[in-house]
Each structure stands twice: as structure tokens, then as C-alpha cells.
Design a protein around this nucleic acid. Structure first.
Length: 951
RNA sequence: GCCCCCGUAGCCCAAUUGGCAGAGGCAGUCGGCUUAAAACCGAUCGAGUGCGGGUUCGAGUCCCGUCGGGGGCACCA
């Protein structure tokens, strides 16, 4: 059986472009590229400078990969190949291109492995990085390797810590809308320009009191904050890491709200700028929308409702509906509830309001207990509105009406003021509540129809909205009505216009080992001290056990104890921080994984600089604003950032925040890190399950007549991510072995639009392979290995085909349309094969084809280029230019339509005027016959396209 | 529940942005090479654009409705 394969290979011509030959070529060129440093991009200054740099530059970046130990599947490199192709194209055009790839190497998998096996996470991480580097190298990526690093390198995280200190030592000056050094704030306090909270002079405050005041301003601050404590993991998790069911995304353990002292980042100070500057970015609209929703700015008003001697403050985005407020609802946790609740039910209290209790106090206590016992899941899934009356009434400021005050769990303490004015006429939740509790419903916006039922949420003229104190908004639209009501509230002292955000401050601490330690120590009184720059980096200590202390997953009354706390010798240090040698205790938290990826683009620019995070001159060159190219509003940043849409909110928002702080403090010249963002699609794959629902190996499934079979049994197709559990993984290594890297690259880049997700199909890869074989054969004799190009002059037809392709391919590469660029190259190759397959290709045609292919398939292109007699690598071009004279045709064939349907065709000179086209079309026999002598009503002439006769 | 994206040959995808529905690949069919085969070569077949309306001289493209697939957010006042 196996003998057959041996005979097969004997028949293959010795110099055919096979996988084996491809592999040999690829390895050889990868070695040469590395040896010659062809992808090195010079900097203006510093250790990577080589004299004058070209003014024309391009900074391309892929989203930071985590070096997983599992190795890559064919879906992973998609983005890297896209940026590589784009970068190569621009490098060939003569631009200075910065493209490299580092590793976001702190993270949980290595730490969990350490917990299980005792292997140091650094060991695992370094192994994984070297595996990944080998795979990336085999793809033929044109990275400047000198600029690669991992976030776990002390040389890198030294600067992550340094940036943390910059943020810690800064505050947000609202009047100037920018961050300033904390020292300037202290000076304002000291000089009395700004008064302290209790009015005492600054220097009379104790150190602890001063620190407490400053903590209210610092952009990185310690706060007793409600956090998501997960005893099962032994750590606190961010909101984003908690599932809708109130459990940890990882491990699926219960998560409890608990007050703990934690590092926070005051990202909310930047909410407006983060929102407004989205307009200056060249990003997918989808991602901008997601960020806008996440920041969630809403304009509205805070309104004061008097209830006895208390004032209940509510936030509303619809102050125009104030006349329709028929009750109030407070979050059950609202602090005012205890004060408001009355001893007895007012006379005639509706039974539905009492929760079946004898007094409001009992009802409130009961309801609060019930609420606290319900899980997040229950509260979210509950469709039925619940609540109880507090016994208290409040006064609606616009009309003096007394309205009942309820507590209800659909009101959240964490949003707005934790209290709402309920307007059933214009709010679905309030409507449902009002119906259930028999509360009045007053419409204050006119619905479009008389028989409209339910709450009306859209715009319309205000009704029932006027009082005797000078407020009348009847007839006004929502926006105008809002403005007028806000003005009235402010004039009369009943409220004021405000802005609310959904965005919360960023919880910036993890109780883990494998992360950046904080450059902070505490004295015996718990006062925090930032370490001076010369004590950086604070390196991770060795520990015997990498796990945080975990607890019974259901025990909410436990406290975090991070692994670093176990390194006693490291935690307790004697330092001289200016007050002489004293004893301090290190912070035992580490930074979250986002920290390292918030600023890595800056380090790519100046990876070895040990004086600064990045030299300003280098930063300005690679990232500075270029208004002359990108318009006067250009914020600067990367020229192209490519990655999956899954990072639309968190990573991209956090990185923008850090970058803006660094900009405010004068460390960078760009206002945004990523000028242009592109989300590549995902490569997915089919998977198959048998009748029992068990997954079967996708590779062994056969298709017959639209049905699928595995070992003779019918199986059923589904579509999803590549992964072990679906048994549908295909690896780049398999593809290299069967076809070579260039074939793999070409297939992956041309199987569909870069932005779209699409299914992998191994059987289709052969198409790309055949194309490269054909192209190879145009230039190399398969039997002798000799170059078979000729000095023959190409025909005009040849040149038309060539230059049309050049123009198309250029614009496709520019627009990241690699699939259509590839199709155009195949088309040209097929044309050449047809005309010259038998007699050898004119050099004038062969060379441009090779050059145009180079961004997609660099190895085979280099090999052919060198066979064509060029000693220099084609990495820096040239790239063919289209000659206009071959792009215009002498004659054009026009379709002639009658009433939009093609009825005839004509060939006319390309420069025919509209009038000539019109005459020629009407003179056409078939058209004349169809018109039957009648005058056409209208003739539409679209130059270059068609003529349409309207009969 | 709300928001966003996508439905074009058996399959993956093009279509100068409102102007002749097909560039390219896979599969199929026919032929060549071969004792035979194909991860070889050549030729060829194939959809009126998910469905229903509308605007227009003209709609895959714009608008409305609907069905299907994917993604994001979610008692956010």
C-alpha cells in the first residue's frame, strides 16, 4: 500500500512548486531576513537610530497576544497576516514601517498552572513565548524583532509601575479639563487658594488627614469600595468579570458585594473627553457606539422633593415629564429610608401597598430582607414589579401635589441618586409598577394616536404641564421642554441640570501573584507612600505557594489574602523615603492584566530606553499628530491597530484613558493611542455531532448529497469557534506541511473580507496552492529549474491587463481588501498562463506580478525575484506603478436598456459624447424596432456605463 | 426587551457605492497527460440577490415590514 506513494513522487517534475520546495524556500528566506535585519525600522534618536529617518512612516500594530501554551490554530494568525501584508505593501512603497509583536504575558493560566504544579509562572510563560515565536516566525511575518518584549520583563513593568506613579501623583483639574501634578494641588491647598474640606489650614492637618483629602483627588486612589469578592477564587473580580448570574466568569463561583479597601483609577474624570474624542478617531462605528453606551452619558436634572423635613434628591433624564410624576421610588438600600418610614399607615392606605404588614416599618424591614436575600439573578429575571409604601409622602415641586414614597428593587442604589420620580405615562417600568399598585397615570407627552395604550416613550408635544408659578411647557417638544423645566428648577431652587455617566471608576487591584506589584509601601499607620523612581522596578518576590488563600465559595464573610502576603521578607522593608530609615510594608496586591496592554505601543517605539518610558522625539515621529495628512483635528496615534472586536470596550477604553493622562502630564504628544482601528473577523469552523449529540472529529466527516457521515453514520453540522471541545482544530503547522506558509497565507488572506468572520475549509486551500504553482511555472521551468522569462515585448493587450491589475491591487491593499487583491493576481496569472504558458513569459510582465504578490506571499516572491536576477531583497520595493495610458480603453461596449432592461449592445469610441451615445442608441436596430417609431419619453445616458431608453 | 452587523450559484466570496448580477477559489461535468490516478493542465456548467412591499428611467445596493444567522448591552431613571 505504501509503495504507491513512493511511485507518485517520482512523477512530479523535480522543480515543481510543491510543499517540500516551499518549505525549503521559506526557511532559507526567513534566515536571510533575520540575518540582514531587513525589517528593522530606524528611530530618529536613541539606540535604534541610523541617521536621518524618512518623513513618511507607518506604525502598524496587532492586539497584544497572551502567549498560550496550547499553540496556535489557523484562526489566530489572521490579524497578524493582515497587518503583515499591509505593512509589507507600505514598506515596498518606501515608507519607514514599524511593525513588531510582543507578549501580554502576565495572566491567570500560567498562575493557575503554578498553583497546581509549583512551576514558576515565569518558566511556563517563557516556554510558551518561545513556542509562539517559532510559530510566528514560520508564518514569515516581517517584524522588527529588536522591538519585541513581554509585559513580564522587569525592564518593561518598571515603566508600567512608573506610569502608575504618574497617575497616582496626578489629579484632575475640572476647570482646566486636564490632569495636573498632585504637587500643584498641594500648593493650592497650602497657599489657601483652595480651601480644605473643613476649612482648617493645610499644614494643620495631620499627614493622614492630608492623605485622605488628596485621595479624593488622585487619579489612582485607595478607596473603601464595594467590590465583587469571590471567596472561591480568593480574589476580587471586576464588574466585567462577573456574569449576569452574579458568578465569576472563571470558575463560576458565587460573587458577593463587599466593602474593601482597593486601588481605583479615576477614569470617570475623563468620561467627557473619552466620549467626545471618539469623533476624532477613524474607528468602526460599531466600536464607537459600544464605547458611547459604556460611558453612558445622560443629560438630565437633579430634582429635590421635600418630604417633611427631608429632601429626596432624584436624577431624571426626563425633567420635561415632571408633571406626570405620581409617586416616588427609592432603592431599598437608600439611607433616607430609615428616616422617612412612618410609624403607622396613613388613613385609607391601599392594601396592595402594605405588603400585608401592620406598619410601614415592618413592611420596609421585611421587603429589605427579602431583597438582600435574592440573588442578582433573581432580581434581574423578575418580571413582576415589587415594592412597599414607606408611609411617607413627598411634594412634587412643579405642582405641589403630595405623592407617595415607595421602596422598590427595580431602583438601583448605584445609578443616579438611588431614587426616582416615577412617571408611569412615559416609562415602562413605572407604568408596570403603577398598574400593579393602583397608582395614577398622567400623560404629559401626547401620544400619536387617540387609542394609544401603554407608556409613550417617544417625542411629542407636552400636555398637562403648566403651573401657576411661571412654568408652562404645553405644546413643546421633549428637548425644548427639558431645557425650560431645568431653567425653572434652577431659578426656583428646586433642582439643577446635571450629567450622569454609567461609567464607573476602574477597580485596579487583584489578589494574585503573576502581575505587576504596586510601587507603594505603607507605614505603621497605614499611610501610603509612593516609591521614588530609582527604586523601580519593584520585582516580584519568590514565593513557595502561588495561590491566594481561597475559602468556602459561599462564605461571604471572608477577607482576601493574596499570595504576596506570604513573602514576609519582601513585604516588610526598611527604606529611607526622606524621613530617615523606617520600616514599611509593601502593597501585596498586583495590577490587573489590562495594565501592561495600556501603553505597549509606546514601548514598541523605544524598547530599550532605560532613561525614559519613551523618548519624546521618537514618540512624536511615530505617533504624533499629523494634521497636514489627517486633518486639523488629528489626535495622533497608531496608523493602524488591528484586533478582534472583543476588546471594543475595556482594553481600548483603559488604554485611551492612560494615554490621555500621559498626554496631560506632557509625556506624549499624541492625544489618542490608536488613530485608526480595524476589527478583523474570526475564522470559525464547522463541527459535527452524531445522533446522540456527541462531537465527532470534523476532519473525518464525509459529505454526500448535502448530508454528513462519520463512519457511515449520519452526523449533523454546526458552526462555531475552533477548539478542542468541538474537535475541529486545524493548525498552521499542518498547513505548512501540506502546502507551505505562502499558500497558507494566500488562502487565509483571500478566503473572504478581512473584517468578516468566515468558515475555514481545508479542502479549498488547494486553490491557493495551484495558483502559486501556476505562477511559479510562468517563471521557472518545472523540469530544469531554469528561469523561462523572455525579452519579448508585451502586447498592448498584455499591458492593459497588467496595469489594470496594478491599479486594482494597489487600491485593494490600501483598503485592506486582500481577498480582491488576490483574485486580481490570480486573474492576471491565468491570463499570462493562457498567452505565455507555452512559450515563456515576457520579463516586463513577470517582474511586476512577482512584486505585487510579495506582500501576500513574501517567500516565493523573494525566491522568484532573486531567480529573475535581483540580488537585493524586494522588501523595500519597488512596487509597480500603473500607467494611466493603459487604463483607458479606445472603445467601450455599452448596454442599451429599454425601461431598465438590457435589449441591445453597441460598441462606441470611449470618448463619445452624451449626445453621440444617445443618437447611436436610438439608431440601434433592435431598439428602433422596440420603439416602433414612437418618440422615447426620455433617454438616460450614463457615460462609461449605459444608455437607458424610457419608452 | 433595546442597539448594531450580515443573508448573492451546492459551498466560500466579487459587483467601480443607485447603472450590463460574476472577478477569484472549492465542488461538479467534459476533455488532456497517464497502465492508472490527482494536491497536474485545459474547457465547461451554474444564482436574478432570504421573503413581502415602496422610492426610481433603473435597486444586490436606498426606505418600510418580515424571517433567519451573528455580536453587544440590559430594571441606567
Amino acid at each position: 500500500m505504501s509503495e504507491a506513494t513512493g511511485e507518485q513522487t517520482q512523477d512530479v517534475p523535480p522543480f515543481r512548486y510543491t510543499a517540500a520546495l516551499a518549505n525549503e524556500i521559506e526557511r532559507r528566506w526567513q534566515d536571510r531576513w533575520e540575518r540582514e535585519g531587513v525589517y528593522h525600522a530606524p528611530n530618529p534618536v536613541g539606540d535604534l537610530a541610523e541617521g536621518e529617518v524618512p518623513g513618511d512612516k507607518l506604525f502598524v500594530q496587532d492586539m497584544f497576544p497572551y502567549p498560550s501554551g496550547k499553540g496556535l490554530h489557523v484562526g489566530h494568525p489572521l490579524g497578524y497576516l493582515g497587518t503583515d501584508t499591509y505593512a509589507r505593501y507600505h514598506r515596498m512603497l518606501g515608507r519607514n514601517v514599524l511593525h513588531t509583536l510582543g507578549f501580554d504575558a502576565f495572566g491567570l493560566p500560567a498562575e493557575q498552572y503554578a498553583v497546581q504544579t509549583g512551576t514558576h509562572p515565569r518558566v511556563t510563560t517563557e516556554q510558551n513565548i518561545s513556542i509562539m515565536k517559532r510559530q510566528l516566525r514560520a508564518l514569515g511575518l516581517g517584524h522588527d524583532q529588536r522591538r519585541s518584549f513581554a509585559t513580564t520583563d522587569p525592564d518593561y513593568y518598571r515603566w508600567t509601575q512608573w506610569i502608575f506613579l504618574q497617575i497616582y501623583n496626578a489629579w484632575y483639574d475640572k476647570s482646566q479639563q486636564r490632569a495636573r501634578p498632585i504637587s500643584e494641588l498641594i500648593e493650592e491647598f497650602r497657599s489657601g487658594k483652595r480651601s480644605t474640606p473643613d476649612g482648617r489650614p493645610w499644614d494643620e492637618l495631620s499627614k493622614a488627614e492630608q492623605q485622605e483629602v488628596l485621595a479624593g483627588y488622585r487619579l489612582a486612589y485607595l478607596a473603601e469600595a464595594p467590590v465583587n469578592w469571590c471567596p472561591g477564587l480568593g480574589t476580587v473580580v471586576a464588574n466585567e468579570e462577573v456574569t449576569a448570574e452574579g458568578r465569576s466568569e472563571r470558575g463560576n463561583f458565587p460573587v458577593f458585594r463587599k466593602n474593601l479597601k482597593q486601588w481605583m483609577m479615576r477614569i470617570t474624570a475623563y468620561a467627557d473627553r473619552l466620549l467626545d474624542d471618539l469623533d476624532r478617531l477613524d474607528w468602526p462605528e460599531k466600536v464607537k457606539t459600544m464605547q458611547r453606551n459604556w460611558i453612558g452619558r445622560s443629560h438630565g436634572a437633579n430634582v429635590y422633593f421635600r418630604s417633611g423635613e427631608h429632601t429626596i434628591e432624584v436624577f431624571t433624564t426626563r425633567p420635561d415629564t415632571l408633571f406626570g410624576a405620581t409617586y416616588m421610588a427609592l432603592a431599598p438600600e437608600h439611607p433616607l429610608v430609615d428616616e422617612l418610614v412612618t410609624d403607622a399607615w396613613p388613613e385609607g392606605t391601599d392594601e396592595r401597598w402594605t405588603g400585608g404588614k401592620a406598619t410601614p416599618k415592618e413592611a420596609v424591614a421585611e421587603y429589605r430582607l427579602a431583597t438582600s436575600q435574592r440573588s442578582e439573578l433573581d432580581r434581574q429575571e423578575a418580571k413582576e414589579k415589587t415594592g412597599v409604601f414607606t408611609g411617607a409622602y413627598a411634594t412634587n415641586p412643579v405642582n405641589g401635589k403630595q405623592i407617595p414614597v415607595f421602596i422598590a428593587d427595580y431602583v438601583l442604589m448605584g445609578y443616579g441618586t438611588g431614587a426616582i420620580m416615577a412617571v408611569p405615562g412615559q416609562d415602562t417600568r413605572d407604568w408596570e409598577f403603577a398598574e400593579k399598585f393602583g397608582l395614577p397615570i398622567i400623560r404629559t407627552v401626547q401620544p400619536p394616536t387617540e387609542d394609544f395604550s401603554g407608556p409613550y416613550l417617544d417625542d411629542g408635544p407636552a400636555i398637562n404641564s403648566a403651573n401657576d408659578s411661571g412654568l408652562d411647557i404645553n405644546g413643546l417638544g421633549v428637548e425644548e421642554a427639558k431645557k425650560k423645566v431645568i431653567a425653572w428648577l434652577e431659578d426656583t431652587g428646586h433642582g439643577q441640570g446635571t450629567v450622569q455617566y454609567k461609567l464607573r471608576d476602574w477597580l485596579f487591584a487583584r489578589q494574585r501573584y503573576w502581575g505587576e506589584p504596586f510601587p507603594i509601601v505603607y507605614d505603621e499607620n497605614g499611610i501610603a507612600y509612593p516609591l521614588p523612581e530609582d527604586m523601580l522596578p519593584v520585582e516580584l518576590p519568590e514565593v513557595e505557594d502561588y495561590s491566594p488563600t481561597t475559602f468556602d465559595p459561599d462564605d461571604a464573610d471572608t477577607e482576601p489574602s493574596p499570595p504576596l502576603a506570604k513573602a514576609k521578607d519582601w513585604v516588610e522593608v526598611e527604606l529611607d523615603l526622606g524621613d530617615g530609615p523606617r520600616r514599611y510594608w509593601r502593597d501585596t496586591n498586583v495590577m490587573p492584566q489590562w495594565a501592561g496592554s495600556c501603553w505597549y505601543q509606546l514601548r514598541y517605539i523605544d524598547p530599550h530606553n532605560d532613561e525614559r518610558m519613551v523618548d519624546p522625539e521618537n514618540e512624536r515621529y511615530w505617533m504624533g499628530p499629523r494634521p497636514e495628512i489627517h486633518g486639523e483635528n488629528d489626535p495622533g496615534g497608531l496608523d493602524l491597530y488591528v484586533g478582534g472586536v472583543e476588546h471594543a470596550v475595556l482594553h481600548l477604553l483603559y488604554a485611551r484613558f492612560w494615554h490621555k493622562v500621559l498626554y496631560d502630564l506632557g509625556h506624549v504628544s499624541s492625544e489618542e493611542p490608536y488613530r485608526r482601528l480595524f476589527n478583523q473577523g474570526y475564522i470559525q469552523a464547522y463541527a459535527y455531532r452524531d445522533a446522540r449529540g456527541a462531537v465527532v472529529p470534523a476532519e473525518e466527516v464525509e459529505e454526500r448529497d448535502g448530508k454528513f457521515y462519520y463512519q457511515g453514520q449520519e452526523v449533523f453540522q454546526e458552526y462555531g469557534k475552533m477548539g478542542k471541545s468541538l474537535k475541529n482544530i486545524v493548525t498552521p503547522d499542518e498547513m505548512f506541511e501540506r502546502f507551505g506558509a505562502d499558500t497558507f497565507r494566500f488562502y487565509e488572506m483571500t478566503m473572504g473580507p478581512f473584517a468578516d468572520s468566515r468558515p475555514w475549509s481545508t479542502k479549498d486551500v488547494v486553490g491557493a496552492h495551484r495558483f502559486l504553482q501556476r505562477l511559479w511555472r510562468l517563471i521557472v521551468d518545472e523540469n530544469t529549474g531554469e528561469v523561462r522569462v523572455t525579452d519579448a515585448e508585451p502586447t498592448v493587450e498584455d499591458l492593459r491587463a497588467l496595469h489594470k491589475t496594478i491599479a486594482g491591487v494597489r487600491s485593494d491593499y490600501d483598503g485592506l481588501r486582500f481577498n480582491t487583491a488576490g483574485a486580481k493576481l490570480i486573474e492576471l496569472c491565468n491570463y499570462l498562463t493562457k498567452h505565455y504558458g507555452a512559450k515563456g513569459t515576457p520579463r516586463q510582465l513577470a517582474e511586476p506580478v512577482v512584486l505585487m504578490l510579495a506582500p501576500l506571499c513574501p517567500h516565493i516572491a523573494e525566491e522568484l525575484w532573486s531567480k529573475l536576477g535581483h540580488e537585493e531583497s524586494l522588501v523595500r520595493g519597488p512596487f509597480p506603478e500603473a500607467d494611466e495610458q493603459y487604463l483607458v480603453e479606445d472603445t467601450v461596449e455599452y448596454p442599451i436598456q429599454v425601461n431598465g432592461k438590457v435589449r441591445s449592445r453597441m460598441t462606441v469610441p470611449a470618448d463619445a459624447s452624451e449626445e453621440e451615445l444617445r443618437k447611436a442608441a436610438l439608431a440601434d436596430e433592435k431598439i428602433a424596432a422596440l420603439l416602433g417609431g414612437a418618440e422615447p419619453r426620455k433617454v438616460i445616458v450614463v457615460p462609461g456605463r449605459l444608455v437607458n431608453v424610457v419608452a
